[in-house]
Design a protein around this nucleic acid. Sequence first.
RNA 1: GGCCCCGUCGUCUAGUGGCCUAGGACAUCAGGUUUUCAUCCUGAAGAUCGCGGGUUCGAAUCCCGCCGGGGUCACCA
Length: 476
Amino acid sequence: MTVRVRFAPSPTGIPHIGNSRTALFNWLFAKHHQGKFIVRIEDTDRKRLVPGSQEKIMEILDVLGLKEDESYRHGGPYGPYIQSQRLHLYQKYAHQLVEEGKAYYCFCSPERLAKIRKEQQKKGLIPKYDRHCLHLSKDEVEEKLKGGQKYVIRLKVPDDKDISWNDLIQGKITINTANIDDQILLKSDGYPTYHLAVVIDDHLMKINYVLRGSEWISSTPKHLLLYQAFGWQPPKFGHFPLILGPDKSKLSKRHGAKSVLDYVDEGYLPEALVNFMAFLGWNYEDNSAILTLEELVKLFDLDRIGKSNPIFDRQKLDYFNREHIRRLPLTELAKRLGKYLPADYPLKGDKFNRLVELCQPRMTNLKDFLSLTEFVYPQKTAESKDLAKYLKTTEVREVVKNIRQKLTQIKEWKVSSIKEVIEEEVERSSLSRGKVFMALRIAVLIRPVTPPLFESIALLGKELTLRRLDIALNWN
RNA sequence: GGCCCCGUCGUCUAGUGGCCUAGGACAUCAGGUUUUCAUCCUGAAGAUCGCGGGUUCGAAUCCCGCCGGGGUCACCA
């Protein structure tokens, strides 16, 4: 039987990195088993809908390289893949359960529900619906329905029954129905709740593995109850540990949890994010291993997912970013850098490519390129404190002055001739290479941390180099 | 609070009764190479395996209790 998994986000905002990891794990699991990865939009909460988030969700999948096999935009045999377009199904099944006596109409107002909940909490009881409407007679129900009263449909949950399942990740879990309220399946606006919709859709879409975050564990018995009520074969369930923030609480929007898109904007490579997310909860031998999506597909396995909640660690992300940057082919890196560069970036073509090559081993973040190569902007100048630090002695200035003089005479401005001139002058002086090089670095490349000196000076060009040297020499 | 789950270096983790004087990785620190930085190499520090009881010749690994953390208890997903 082919594996069919789904990623079922609700378009109530841009998913954070934890949600995206769920997508990743589902995708990896599907691909590892040559299965299908389905994306279903769960937009049943009309109040929390955020326009545009649906597109962002898909954009994240695209950025990460998680291609779906079925979705609203891709099509597929079990559509539509947006829940708001499947309303008739949920309504049909909900009413079917009512007819079979497995669910019932409830006419209680939200106010009444809030009131009884408050009272129960005051008494220290578990907040649960008091089943007021379960005891309504058939005639009473008919009458209210005819009168056009708003209603919801609730599942009749057994009073005291152990529901258990073998979780693919957590092991055997048992929860007693005494802890479960009579769930609302169909809301008064005609939309289904998550619980009803997810079960119907997973069944209709032939999903056989449900892999999601462990915040869903306590909802699983409700779903199992529903499968039972419908007489359907439930899928296998697996619940991933949750990613925690640095303060050890669940990653959330409120907590400032960022999305994949945010991290990309900040200079992280999608490859690095994938690698990093994969090792959040999952592991394989050496979990500093630099792996591509293809390699992860081969290696991914539910057995190697832990149960405890990992904490998001930015330093580890940086490590993966650095390693993936170094592994990127030069032309590709140059291309990726494009989106971070301002339109007026001075270097283009071969010179730009050469600069990228020089910076590649020095970047942890794509944005590092900007600070590393600040010297290419003609109008930028060195900071006084740096000039003061590296060009303060007259000996140093003397050597720099001599170098300036000799550089003027160079006919063909290239690395070898620049190198020759500088090394000759260092030789002649009594100063160390380091001292002179740093002075030149500050004077010409304007910052203490730059790509290699000769190469950078060559790329900068004669004119600007001499101009900068003059500025430095005249500084006091 | 009820229910469910978890608890090994700062962090990610290996580990399923003896190979553990608890291994690796990221981060940190020190030394070496290097024109800066980064890389690279070498090394150091860092975990009485949450705590307390058992079981056993022997426990990070099994059992019990406690403590700590997280999740969840909506006409949200």
